[in-house]
Design a protein around this nucleic acid. Structure first.
Length: 107
DNA sequence: CGGTTGACCAAGT
DNA sequence: GACTTGGCCAACC
């Protein structure tokens, strides 16, 4: 399994109403390849239904990039009931899915 | 094998 | 707050 595929395996575990971060995903994979996680999200070939890469934000709770524009990412987050102020997710700390919460995946 | 590229991070100014 | 800097590391030349 490639690094990208492992990222997607974690990605599909993030439920509607919650978010995670590039940092947490990297940590869940036992690496500090934050940027490589971003690269994987950028290449995400799957549907947003099963693989919601718009739910992956920066470690400080700001929205971060998106292949179809940050405005589209913002829109999708709002549709899922999140509140955003000054570019940052409100209650990011409570909504954030941390590395320890992910189920282990295949190698 | 070396070099470049990022949807990043953290600490500093 | 808005930059800049050095660091990070998989993927793809």
């Amino acid at each position: 399994m490639t690094f990208d595929e492992r990222c997607y395996a974690l990605l599909r575990q993030i439920p509607r109403g919650r978010v995670s971060s590039y940092r947490e995903l990297a940590h869940a994979l036992g690496t500090r390849a934050y940027r490589a996680v971003g690269n994987a999200m950028n290449k995400n070939p799957y549907s947003a239904e099963e693989y919601p890469c718009h739910r992956v934000l920066k470690s400080d709770g700001t929205v971060g990039g998106y292949a179809y524009g940050t405005d589209e990412k913002l829109k999708r987050l709002l549709e899922e009931g999140h509140r955003i102020e000054k570019g940052k997710l409100i209650d990011f700390g409570k909504i954030l899915m941390r590395a320890s919460e992910f189920e282990s995946i295949e190698l």
